[in-house]
């Protein structure tokens, strides 16, 4: 067996195990940590495909930022595990349908070559251009409108989130920093002169 094949199966085994543990783990924080492991190994698999930019971006964005915030939320929630497990059977049909749909979609994508759905095969990385340059060039030429549109949507999301948190009436007593820096010592402290008492 070639070494690369061995690495692929090794990473895949970890990935499948981590994916299973995400949904079977009883503790939500553990589940989130297994998801981190899954992202990390998935990035290893992408690295094997020589998609180095995507692999690093996956770690940078999902492991480094998204999952940290996710963990923040999961850790702060007061989760009652028994309550969470209630209604498993009533949700099962809906979950099963969604799961089957996803399997069908994946089958279409992965079997696309076989079924003749895809016109072009996946473009291989060229040796003279680095991954980053190739993606950057495509992003700012061929896909510039979708790219800009996505960024505008994200910007709207950011502003909406900020606006939502700022809508409530201000209850804290924070002072504006510009006022703070102009404070002088004599506004706050009064130095009293007192004659020393004589000790007798």
């Amino acid at each position: 067996m070639e070494f690369k094949t061995f690495v692929f199966y090794f990473l895949s085994a970890i990935l499948v195990f981590a994916g299973l543990r995400v949904i079977t783990s009883r503790n939500p924080v553990h589940a989130a940590l297994y998801l981190v492991l899954a992202f990390f190994t998935a990035s290893g698999v992408w690295m094997l495909l020589q998609a180095e930019f995507l692999a690093i971006a996956l770690v940078l964005v999902y492991v480094g930022a998204v999952m940290v915030l996710f963990l923040f939320v999961v850790m702060m929630l007061d989760i009652n595990l028994d309550r969470l497990r209630e209604g498993f059977w009533s949700y099962l049909p809906l979950g099963a349908i969604i799961g089957l749909l996803m399997v069908a979609e994946m089958g279409l994508v992965l079997g696309g070559n076989y079924l003749g759905l895809l016109e072009s095969s996946v473009r291989q990385a060229t040796t003279e251009d680095s991954n980053v340059q190739a993606i950057g060039r495509l992003m700012f030429t061929e896909y510039v409108y979708p790219f800009e549109l996505a960024s505008v949507i994200l910007l709207v999301g950011i502003i909406a989130a900020v606006a939502l948190t700022q809508r409530a009436k201000r209850t804290n007593k924070s002072v504006s920093p510009s006022q703070q820096v102009f404070v002088k010592a004599r506004d706050r402290v009064r130095v009293l002169q007192m004659p020393a008492e004589k000790s007798d």
């Binding site: 940590l33 981190v36 180095e52 930019f53 690093i56 971006a57 770690v59 940078l60 492991v63 480094g64 930022a65 940290v68 963990l71 923040f72 850790m75 680095s130 991954n131 980053v132």
Partner: peptide, 20 residues
């Protein structure tokens, strides 16, 4: 080739030590 990106992504994992 993408060594700067690699460093950024690897060092961003360090925050897990703190939060965990």
């Amino acid at each position: 080739n993408a060594s700067l990106l690699y460093i950024m992504s690897i060092t961003s994992i360090g925050v897990y030590g703190i939060i965990l």
